[in-house]
């Protein structure tokens, strides 16, 4: 039930993000969601895309440092307390969140939260046991 995410190392200089997006556009890659972490001189672009392998190949060929990391996508109803319910479920399990980002599904009913856990297997086990909808990669990529 894990999801693959593409991470790209970007130098903090004008035009770099555009270059990545241009490559994806030319290869007809669609982005489900993304987040951009920045520091004073570099950033990390994280992407959930419809074709992980193609994206990785294309960006590597253009000389970008690309990594594929495992994240967990959890679906919750889009209403107050949605994210809290997940965090509450994991409370006391000693599972650490490295980062997260989210988007709202097209239907507008549910939100999907992308988590990077230090122990994804354990997180999935706990969440599923407590009745959360953990999305598979296939489902997420084709959303």
């Amino acid at each position: 039930m894990k999801v693959e995410q593409i991470s790209v190392f970007l130098e903090n200089k004008p035009g770099v993000l555009e270059e990545v997006m241009k490559a994806l556009k030319e290869a007809n890659i669609n982005i489900r969601t993304l987040s951009l972490a920045d520091t004073s001189d570099f950033g990390i672009l994280r992407l959930i895309v419809n074709d992980v392998t193609a994206t990785s190949t294309i960006l590597k060929a253009r000389g970008f440092r690309v990594s594929r990391t495992t994240v967990v996508a959890v679906e919750v109803p889009d209403r107050p307390g949605g994210l809290h319910s997940i965090l509450e479920a994991l409370g006391g399990e000693a599972i650490n969140i490295e980062y997260l980002y989210a988007f709202v599904e097209k239907s507008g009913e549910n939100a999907v939260i992308i988590f990077r856990y230090d122990n994804p297997d354990r997180a999935i086990e706990v969440l599923q046991k407590k009745g959360f909808s953990v999305l598979s990669g296939e489902k997420l990529y084709s959303m």
Partner: peptide, 17 residues
């Protein structure tokens, strides 16, 4: 320059920092 292998297991800002 950052090395390919290094970034492969470091998608977190803290690792690069």
């Amino acid at each position: 320059e950052v090395r390919e292998e290094a970034f492969a297991n470091a998608d977190e800002v803290k690792v690069l920092q």
